[in-house]
Write a protein that binds this DNA or RNA. Structure first.
Lengths: 216, 216
DNA sequence: GGGGTTAACATTGTCGACAATCTACCCATT
DNA sequence: AATGGGTAGATTGTCGACAATGTTAACCCC
């Protein structure tokens, strides 16, 4: 049982705005390279330009927006090199998260939970968009389960970038069982506390993703 | 020879402000837990509150500042748990950077450069503050040399937090040769492309730091 | 037609002012 | 002495207006 009395964390307006913008970028509402025009956005969000700009600065810090002085902020354009860099950064975070779980955490429970998430891929495994969504949930859960606030924060940015990639290539995505199986294997390795294997599987998993995304 | 003609990146005001604030926090000008009062800061920096707030939002995104609604922004207070989390995150970044260098980079040159940095510790190795400064340069160089913009960006935040820790405990720092030797060993391992050993050394190095910082 | 100048326009960058909120303190009440 | 209410002060949150800058297109000259 959890207490009803807990510190009520009221989110600041810039933080809410940043969240909304992240979602919009991740879901392709703003295409890579697109400019985020302040006046428009402020009107659409129902706030003035001040808080909006503060929220946008957060995304700039994350690297999701790129500033050009006196021109404005633009959604990052993911070149193949950028995709590789992002996945490599993500790999390092996720491997660190997994190691934390295996070393200090309840790897058995986490492994089973991850397995359950992976199983949700099975019925929809020929629908690339649905698989992609569960894929992301899987990795978010993994990092969250590590209990590390820093890993989680850094990972969040990378998840948005991953979403951008997936979204950009959604139509050309091929449907296969591989992704389902890969996730199942990772979950099993964590459940059984197989450190080396978890590390390898995560590495390969990221390599696969890079391959898929930069192929054509 | 490098060309004189390169894209001239004019930094935006919020970005400059963020840099200044980071330096100030890292050097203990703002103590952990201290409030950053907007009106004061704006006056001292010679800007209005608008750009200042935008800069501060960047640090909030990085986790260096903690917001309390309608109260203001406060410098993060590094509890032992926070220190552990930060060092673990830093370890994962630096190990990833080192692996990049060993796999794709010119590890020999980088190793020699790192060695040169470590050697600068030798003459001042009984001055904890001087050693700390070179220590940080060593690790910054390592990550920068990986050529990964994402690793570098994430690392920058962690370096500030490291500085906070070092600064807070500067007076109680003991002077020994260990840090000098540890860095030399890491540089050598990278120069000789000893993957396993580099990984181990970096792990131990971070463990040592955590031990030193959370001991008392 | 190419290149340069000018002017209108759109957008960002900055600022000062006002509103909303929280804190601290005092004082009356029980 | 503890509780509750009220008030003053300080600080943040928000907004609209203006200045600065860059872009575009038309225009002119050569």
């Amino acid at each position: 049982m959890t207490s009803y009395i807990e510190p009520l964390a009221q989110e600041s307006t810039p933080s809410i705005i940043a969240d909304k913008l992240r979602k919009a970028i991740g879901h392709g509402e703003f295409k890579p390279g697109a400019q985020l025009v302040e006046a428009d956005l402020a009107r659409k969000l129902g706030v003035s330009r001040g808080p909006l700009r503060e929220g946008m600065q957060r995304l700039t810090q994350e690297g999701l927006l790129v500033p050009i002085r006196n021109r404005g902020l633009f959604v990052i354009d993911m070149t193949p090199a950028e995709i590789r860099d992002m996945y490599y950064a993500r790999e390092s975070i996720e491997r660190a998260a997994a190691m934390l779980i295996l070393r200090d955490g309840d790897f058995e429970t986490v492994g089973l939970d991850l397995h359950a998430i992976a199983e949700r891929m099975k019925p929809v495994r020929h629908d690339p968009a649905a698989v992609g969504e569960i894929d992301i949930q899987f990795h978010e859960f993994l990092v969250r389960a590590s209990g590390s606030p820093r890993l989680a924060r850094m990972h969040r940015t990378q998840i948005i970038e991953t979403r951008m990639c997936i979204h950009a290539l959604e139509s050309t995505y091929t449907a296969d069982d591989n992704r389902y199986l890969e996730h199942r294997r990772i979950a099993a390795a964590i459940r059984d506390c197989e450190i080396e294997r978890t590390d390898e599987l995560l590495s390969e998993h990221m390599e696969d993703a890079i391959e898929r995304l930069t192929r054509k």
